[in-house]
Nucleic acid binder design. Structure first.
Lengths: 357, 357
DNA sequence: CTAAGCAATGTTTACGTAAACATCCACTGG
DNA sequence: CCAGTGGATGTTTACGTAAACATTGCTTAG
């Protein structure tokens, strides 16, 4: 019984008053208790794995549970315990690979800790929408929140969190105001630039992400700093919007720069478009121009040529977000701070020595 | 005991017992009611936008709410109402673009209907894991479930759903047992093959997805059927695993087939790898071989050459899943059935006439 | 042998909300 | 002028669980 459609009308459990909106849930603790011949408190104890219940009694209760198909009612449980065992994740459209992978890791990690994950999509990344998401938060069944978002929208947000709801921010930059977990953007960008300089390039061009993005900004800053530290002159910054299409447009432009021998693109998608543009213009990679990306999306190994790129460990970011938020829940007064997840260079075939050598 | 109401300690939000585990939530209805000088029921009425409250009273209550920062307690609400206003989404790793886009659409659409979305990741797509997810479902705070999954695992699953929890399955094939929303895989595959035949190709090779996948199976079947209907002989089937890497391997193999002039790959990622392999072997696309993909991922417009492919409307799939599950919740006895979302051919530059012509 | 101690189990109560029912009061029409 | 009507608001109660406290009965030290 209790199979697929569970619809079953005829058998009414105790409550046949018919007042409930929905063809009510199955058995309650009281029902189980009655069948097992114990008190509901004992059922509760068994249900929560408490000690202090005879093996005999426990078995009886478990049998009764099975027979009635008992499932704890999570609403009642949450009400009683004052916690939902649920984490909320606020994010923009899941259009970037990074966000998705992070989300996935969050969900997995949360599940391991016995937490569910509720998605709070923010349709449009406007201030209003973000504020709205935060205020809806209050009546949402979550114990804590992980925000995957460009922080500058958070910044201005009148973030009035319900008391006791902790927040961890991923992919951002506000260690003083929130607990932040992020990829080591600067380190990755530095490694990318160094990789190209080490190959003998005089300087490195940068195809950056959109202006509003913190990740883009940090990668661009590190690019500039690394060049400066090596005594090189940074060429003008070229901007894209993360999309392959914008990479293509940038590529057409860079193809006309005679002394451009190396490009660091702020993500792999733009590198893809860039490669296409260079190919169209008859420039060879890495023969004429070297290209290094950022992210290491699975497809990048199959680009033409396979892309050298900076690998981000999104799974680790997600995992740390969950760890962080759970630990903050345990000890309320925890300090804010930033945890950086290291990157690593993945050398494939899109980078090499400059043409002249 | 007579309602103490008036007297007793003047301040202190009723619950100063300090028994709650967590620094409890903010104000409750009772607190608001006290401050506004009304009964908690009136607060409830205001909170739920009921008619039959004087404008004066309403304002007073709203003021009190604001002052105390009142947020309805969703656990209590769910307990009382018997519904969570939450949809569960069961899915494997969010590694495929399609699943993600579908999920995103589900979240957005659910939000529009006032529902939240809870993620139930299934770590490994094994029978046990799936069963586990379904049984955990019972104690999860969801009113209905959307499953994004290859159905053959569902098939054998001893799906015992909690009573009253409706299910809609996306991307699958079991209209007789569940309500299903899916892309018109067969139609898309048919269009892909026809597109190539129309260009003059004698026949079309197929790089299929993994054996276990229903989507892969249906695309492959439609490929075979369409060829048969046109009186062509289907070449041997080549199998990949959705990854670009597997497409690359298949491409190396197909490059050796002298009479292969057209390939239909079951997704865009594999097409990417295929393109790389063909390029390596000195074959030109579409000059020597035409390639058509499936999915229309954003990057496919930037492949080398830009990929002709079959566009899937994941957003629509997600939207229909939500509509479907909500409508099933309203009228319990709804019939199962399958809703197909049409695809369309996006012609770019990877397909053309066969070499001989 | 008895009281203390303790393990197993039962009883009471509160969590915050909202449905159902009860009350109050200002009008209206006869 | 009063019963009737209906809108505004208050009171009671139950939703299912689990903490706190109460009870029972058995074991064991003195």
């Amino acid at each position: 019984m209790g199979t697929v459609d569970g619809e079953s009308e005829p058998m009414g459990t105790s409550r046949t008053r018919g007042r409930a909106a929905r063809p009510r849930q199955g058995a309650s603790m009281a029902d189980v208790a009655r069948l097992a011949g114990v008190s509901s408190q004992t059922v509760s104890r068994v249900s929560n794995g408490f000690a202090g219940v005879t093996e005999d009694t426990r078995r009886q209760v478990l049998d009764a549970m099975r027979e009635l198909g008992y499932r704890p009612n999570s609403a009642a449980r949450a009400l009683r315990r004052g916690e939902f065992r649920t984490l909320g994740v606020i994010t923009f459209s899941l259009s970037t690979m990074g966000n998705i992978r992070t989300l996935e890791a969050i969900a997995t990690s949360a599940a391991q800790h016995g937490y569910a994950v509720t998605l709070l999509p923010v349709a449009v990344p406007t201030q209003d929408e973000v504020n709205g998401a935060f205020s809806r938060l209050g009546e949402l069944a979550v114990d804590a929140v992980i925000v995957i978002m460009e922080i500058h929208l958070l910044d201005a947000a009148t973030v009035s969190l319900p008391p006791g709801v902790q927040v961890v921010v991923a992919d951002s930059d506000a260690g003083d105001r929130y607990t932040v977990v992020d990829t080591d953007q600067a380190g990755g960008a530095r490694d990318a630039v160094r990789h190209l300089l080490d190959l003998g390039h005089q300087t490195v061009w940068h195809l950056a992400g959109p202006e509003g993005s913190f990740a883009a900004q940090r990668r661009a800053n590190a690019w500039r700093d690394t060049l400066a530290a090596a005594g090189r002159v940074p060429p003008p910054l070229v901007r894209g919007d993360w999309s392959a299409e914008s990479g293509y447009r940038a590529g057409l432009r860079l193809a006309d720069e005679p002394d451009c021998t190396a490009v660091f693109t702020a993500n792999d998608q733009m590198a893809l478009g860039l490669l296409r543009a260079l190919h169209e213009r008859g420039l060879r990679v890495p023969g004429d121009i070297s290209v290094i990306g950022f992210d290491d999306i699975p497809e990048s190994a199959s680009f033409l040529p396979p892309l050298t790129t900076i690998h981000q460990d999104f799974a680790e970011v997600g995992r740390l977000c969950v760890e962080g938020v759970l630990s903050k829940m345990r000890q309320d007064g925890a300090e804010h701070g930033t945890t950086l997840v290291p990157t690593r260079v993945v050398v494939r075939e899109s980078t090499g020595s400059p043409p002249g050598r």
